[in-house]
């Protein structure tokens, strides 16, 4: 019967999920909100856009699990019609379009960056559904721990961000190459080369943000 649920007991969402989930949703919204921002770079054909920077920040500040959830929310909301893809576009068409590979790579990159930075502490084991487990404490989400990225060594940060960037561009350019029947050189010329300077600056900006004490992100 359709009214059965009204008599079910309310299954409250535990705090260990609500807090990181709200942060993941807001980071997804922020990644969409900066879709309009572009900063001109001297001697570069493409301006600096901040979306990949927020992919980095999702992995760094939310960890591998919630970081990738955040970017999945970003993709789903954009597919459902929120104007949050580059240039304020929306719709499933963009997930299949020429830059679709870049979009799909975001959750993967955030996961890998989070895994490389937070190591084993970023993962936990247990039940994913708290309604299945009557004791919410001690579950999977309680065991997830995200360390302060400011305490992570510079080498580890550089490696994690470089691997994340490589994933974004390998999947993004690879998909465009397949979709539009381009040769590898053509794909690199259009989808990688114009953005190299911007990506290096974004990695520098992310490392400055993480390691600079002025920016308090508790």
């Amino acid at each position: 019967m359709s009214t059965d649920h009204e008599y079910d007991s309310v299954a409250l969402v535990p705090e260990s999920i609500v807090r990181p989930f709200a942060r993941a949703a807001l980071l997804a919204a922020l990644t969409g909100a900066v879709a309009f921002v572009s900063i001109p770079i001297p001697f570069s054909p493409a301006p600096l856009t901040l979306q990949v920077l927020f992919v980095f920040l999702a992995g760094l500040y939310l960890g591998p699990v919630w970081g990738s959830v955040s970017l999945l929310l970003y993709l789903t909301a954009g597919g459902a019609g929120a104007p949050i893809f580059a240039g304020g576009h929306a719709g499933i068409g963009h997930l299949f379009g020429k830059t679709g590979g870049f979009l799909w790579s975001y959750p993967i990159a955030a996961f890998v960056i989070g895994a490389l930075v937070h190591g084993r502490t970023g993962f936990g084991f247990g039940s994913i559904d708290p309604t299945a487990d009557e004791t919410p404490s001690g579950g999977f989400f309680d065991s997830l721990e995200v360390r302060d990225p400011a305490t992570v060594g510079l080498g580890r940060l550089v490696v994690a961000l470089s691997v994340g960037t490589l994933i974004v561009y390998a999947i993004g350019a690879g998909y465009a190459m397949w979709l539009l029947s381009l040769s590898p050189v053509e794909a690199v010329a259009q989808f990688v080369a114009p953005f190299v300077i911007g990506e290096v600056l974004k990695m520098a900006a992310t490392i400055a943000l993480v390691r600079d004490g002025r920016y308090e992100l508790s």
């Binding site: 807090r19 709200a22 942060r23 949703a25 807001l26 980071l27 919204a29 922020l30 909100a33 900066v34 921002v37 900063i39 001109p40 770079i41 001297p42 600096l48 901040l50 920077l53 927020f54 920040l57 500040y61 600056l201 974004k202 520098a204 900006a205 992310t206 400055a208 943000l209 600079d212 920016y215 308090e216 992100l217």
Partner: peptide, 20 residues
Amino acid sequence: ATERAVVLSSRGLTRAFVRA
């Protein structure tokens, strides 16, 4: 450009996490 990106993203992230 880097300094602008740092200020914009750190302030944006701080505000977003406070809201979250």
